[in-house]
């Protein structure tokens, strides 16, 4: 993310990963961003998210993906973490029904804190463990449909659908923005081109620290 390449993206979308602990949120993140989490540098600089730039229809989108890894118990911190998010992956573990039952609670929390136009995908992770599945695909799919969420089953371990899940969410966000379904400013973390970089910086004064 040096200054040179910074100018080449058209959008920055903040996406949050939520769900019970142990469902594999951090694994999905590390799969998608392919970062080695070198903790030395993270601690030193205080980075709280990972980024990856992707191309959608000749447009470059920088995905800024936030993960609460290990911080779920710090209540005030997770509340601030939703601010400015335009996408969310709500993750559960297909082998642990309880993590699926709690999806509704997470959804509620998400809508309390986040932008009403946020794009949400329900993600059933650990699809490689199909033989010990406790959450039927159809049930989750129907639930997602009823709630107006995108849906996908992934395996961070085998790298199945991880890329597609993130791409689908980012594309959906981009569609929303491009179709002017939402006016700019309503989805607040969206930055158009380098000229409005100042806005992003101002916002992040509150997002980080």
């Amino acid at each position: 993310m040096n200054m040179g390449t910074d100018l080449t993206y058209n959008f920055v979308f903040k996406v949050v990963l939520i769900g019970e602990s142990g469902v594999g949120k951090s694994n999905l993140l590390s799969r998608f961003t392919k970062n080695e989490f070198n903790h030395d540098s993270r601690t030193t600089i205080g980075v709280e998210f990972s980024t990856r730039s992707i191309q959608v229809d000749s447009i470059t989108i920088k995905a800024q993906i936030w993960d609460t890894a290990g911080l779920e118990r710090y209540r005030a911190i997770t509340s601030a973490y939703y601010r400015g998010a335009v996408g969310a992956l709500l993750v559960y573990d297909i082998t642990k029904h309880l993590t699926y039952e709690n999806v509704e609670r997470w959804l509620k929390e998400l809508y309390v804190h986040a932008d009403p136009h946020i794009v949400v995908m329900l993600v059933g992770n650990k699809s490689d463990l199909g033989n010990v599945r406790t959450v039927p695909t159809e049930e989750a799919k129907d639930f997602a449909e009823a709630k107006g969420l995108l849906f996908m089953e992934t395996s961070a371990l085998e790298s199945t659908n991880v890329e597609s899940a993130f791409l689908e969410v980012l594309t959906a966000i981009h569609k929303k923005v491009a179709s002017k379904e939402v006016t700019r400013g309503s989805i607040s973390a969206v930055t158009l081109g380098p000229s409005s970089e100042f806005n992003e910086e101002r916002r992040s004064c509150f997002q980080k620290q």
Partner: peptide, 10 residues
């Protein structure tokens, strides 16, 4: 906690 969780998963 974040660092160690990240390391643990990565």
């Amino acid at each position: 906690l974040t660092d160690l969780t990240m390391l643990d998963t990565a």
